[in-house]
Nucleic acid binder design. Structure first.
Lengths: 343, 343
DNA sequence: AATCATTTTCAAAGCGCTTTGGATATGCCT
DNA sequence: AGGCATATCCAAAGCGCTTTGAAAATGATT
C-alpha cells in the first residue's frame, strides 16, 4: 500500500493524506481521523526512502564500529551502548545503521555515509588521543557526537564521557587508604583516550601520596580475560608483587581473579582488586553485594544520553555542541581489604 | 555532488554516467574510465535513498534484536555475530539496520520494516520454540534467515544453526567416559530453541548410559555470570552434589568457576566443567590451552555465513530455502578430569 | 444575496536516481 | 558511396513521498 493507493481509496488527494498523517494543521479533525484509521487498517507506513528523498533527511543515525584488525575484537560494551541509543532512536522515528569496519578503513566509511547521504549524523566510538576522525567529520559537515573524548583535539565537538580521571584517582586513593603501597594498573590499549585518562588519575593519586609510578606495575592491552590473567600472573609472580590491582574492565578483572587463584592467593585478602564496571547487562558485578569493588557507570545509559544529544544537535545545527561528564560511582565489594602486613 | 552535477561536469547525460558507474556494457571503455575518475575526484556516491526508490530495493538488511524486558539483557554474542554479518554486507554494498526492541513489540517492528520498505530482508535472532515470527515473516513476504532454528515450526525457512544436540550429547558422553555419573546442566532460558536442543542432547546421553535425568541437576535462566554462580553454589552445596557441570555459555561458566572456588573445591579435580564456547573475540577461552573444556563454534563465522545465505535468498527469491548445520568442536581444556573417587 | 475571510482540499513540481525506447555516430561490407 | 549492423549516447518517465501555490468549499458579514 502506498500513498497514492491510500488516497484513492479515501477519495482524497495525496497532499491531504500526507498532511493528515504528518500532523499539519490544515486538515479538518474529521478528515484526519478518517485518514488515520484507514492508514491503520491498511497498515500503511510511508516508504523511508521516498520520504527521505523528499525531505532531504535520512532519518537515520550511523554507528561506525571499529574492529581492531589486530585482534578482530568487537568492544564488549558495544551491545549495551547501542541498546541504549536504539531506544532513543526508535522513540524519535530514527533508524540506526551500523557499519562494522576495520580500523584503517574508517575514514572511507565516514566519507561514504556522507556522500551517499545515508545518515543525518554519526556516533563516534572508541576515540583515541588526537583522533583524526573529529577533524574529518568537521570538514565533511556531518553532525556527530563522541562517546568519550579525544585529548589533544582543539575543535569543539559534542561528547559524553565518564570522568575516567577522577574515577581512577578515587579508586587509587581508596586503595592507598587501605594501606596499599604497591598498586598495579591493568589498563586498556595505549592511545585510547579513556586509557590515557585513567592512567592520569592513577598516577596523580600515587604522586599525591608521595609514591612513584612504577612501570613494572603497569600493563596496557585489549581488555580480554586472558590479558587480565596474564598481566596479573606476571606481576604476582615477580619480585615486589603488587598488593592491589586496578583494572580497566570487568572482563579482565575476571582474568585477574583467575590469576590470583592460580597463584594460591586470596582475593580481597592477599591481593585487592578494583575494576571499572560498565554495568553490562550480561555481566553484572554480582548481585546485592558486588563481587568486585568497582567504579561503576552504565554504558547503556550513556548510549541513551548520547543519542539524545546527537538528535538535538541535528535538530539545531547552529547550537554550540553539548558535553556531558558522568561521574562513576565507587561501589565497595568483596575484592578489597586492608593491605597484608609485610612478613 | 549529485548525478546531475556530475554529468554536466563531464558533458554527458545522466544515463551514460549512471550506466558507466553501474557496469553496464553499453558504455565505451574510454568514457567509463573518464566517468569513474571524475566520480572519484568529486567523491561522488549515489544517494542510497534515491537509488533505493528507483530500483525498488532497499539495499539494507534488518537485524531485530530482542531485549528481554525482564532483564533488559542484550545477548552478549550479538556483537560478534553482527561483526561477521557486517563484513558480508559491506562487501555486497548492503547496509545493516538495527532495531533494538522489547520482546513484546517485535511483531510491530517486522511489520514496520516491511511496510516502510526499509529493508530487503531480515535476520531473526534468538528463535524460540514454535517461534511466531517465522509464520509472520512468511505472511509478510519479507525474506528472512534464522540464526538457530525453531522446533515445531512446519514452514520451510532458511536457517543456520550449531548442532546443539550433538554437541551436548558428545560433551555429556565425554564426562561419562571420565567416570562422572552426576552431571549437572546449567542451560539457557527454557523456551529458547537452542536450550531445548542442548537439553535433549544431554538427556539422550544420560539415558543411553542408563542414567536417569535428575531435575535437581538442571537449571535454566539468562546466561549471566551471576546465574552460573548461583546455580553452581546451589547444586554444589546440596546433598548428592554433581561431580561435573555442563554449561551453556562461557560467561556463566566463569560464574561456575567462582562458585567452585568459593566452595573450596578445585575445578578439573573435584568438579569438572564443560561449557559451550561461542568463540567471542573479547572472551577467548584461554590462550593455547583452553581454560575450559568446551564445545566451540564461532558465532562470528555464523554471522558471515548466515548473511551470505540471506543475500543469496534475496537474489533468488524462488530458490528453496537453504540450511546450514555447523558441528561444534570439542576442545579439551583444564577444567575436566576423572571423576573423584567416592569416599 | 453578494462579498470576503477562512478552512479544506488539490494538481503539479521536485527530491536523485534507474531504465526504457529512441536517436545518432561509427565502422564494415558490398 | 550506399546500406546495414553495432556501438554509443540521450531525453524523458517513473519510483513514493513532501510541499508550494492555487482552487474550491464553507461560513460569517454586510
Amino acid at each position: 500500500m502506498n500513498l497514492k493507493e491510500l488516497s484513492q481509496n479515501l477519495g482524497l488527494s495525496q497532499t491531504t493524506v500526507s498532511r493528515a498523517l504528518n500532523g499539519y494543521p490544515e486538515v479538518s479533525p474529521a478528515t484526519r481521523a478518517r485518514v488515520e484509521e484507514a492508514a491503520k487498517t491498511f497498515n500503511y507506513r510511508p516508504s523511508t526512502r521516498a520520504k527521505g528523498l523528499a525531505t532531504g533527511k535520512a532519518l537515520a543515525i550511523g554507528h561506525v564500529i571499529p574492529v581492531s584488525n589486530k585482534h578482530e575484537m568487537v568492544n564488549p560494551i558495544f551491545g549495551d551502548f547501542i541498546a541504549g541509543a536504539g531506544e532513543t532512536y526508535s522513540r524519535h522515528g530514527y533508524e540506526m545503521i551500523l557499519s562494522i569496519v576495520a580500523d584503517e578503513d574508517e575514514n572511507q566509511v565516514y566519507r561514504g555515509l556522507k556522500s551517499r547521504r545515508a545518515v543525518d549524523g554519526v556516533i563516534v566510538h572508541g576515540p583515541r588521543m588526537n583522533d583524526p576522525r573529529i577533524p574529518l567529520l568537521h570538514d565533511l559537515g556531518l553532525p556527530f557526537a563522541v562517546h568519550g573524548r579525544a585529548s589533544g583535539c582543539a575543535l569543539p565537538y559534542a561528547w559524553l564521557d565518564v570522568n575516567n580521571r577522577s574515577a581512577f584517582l578515587r579508586a587509587t586513593d581508596f586503595l592507598f587508604d587501605l594501606g596499599h603501597r604497591r598498586i598495579a594498573l591493568i589498563n586498556g590499549i595505549e592511545g585510547m583516550d579513556f586509557a590515557h585518562r585513567r592512567r592520569e588519575g592513577y598516577s596523580a593519586s600515587l604522586l599525591a601520596h608521595g609514591l612513584h609510578v612504577d612501570p613494572a606495575l603497569m600493563r596496557a592491552g585489549e581488555m580480554t580475560e586472558v590479558f587480565g590473567f596474564q598481566s596479573a600472573m606476571d606481576m604476582l609472580g615477580g619480585p615486589d608483587a603488587p598488593t592491589a590491582i586496578l583494572c580497566s574492565s570487568l572482563i579482565s578483572a575476571l582474568g585477574v581473579r583467575r590469576a590470583i587463584d592460580e597463584r594460591g592467593l586470596v582475593i580481597g585478602k592477599d591481593v585487592s582488586v578494583v575494576t571499572h564496571d560498565d554495568d553490562l547487562s550480561y555481566l553484572q558485578n554480582g548481585g546485592d553485594v558486588p563481587i568486585f569493588t568497582a567504579t561503576r557507570s552504565s554504558v547503556r545509559d550513556a548510549g541513551r544520553r548520547l543519542a539524545t544529544m546527537l538528535l538535538a544537535a541535528i535538530a539545531a545545527p547552529h547550537a554550540p555542541p553539548q558535553h556531558h561528564l558522568l561521574e562513576a560511582e565507587l561501589m565497595i565489594g568483596q575484592s578489597t581489604g586492608p593491605a597484608p602486613k609485610r612478613d
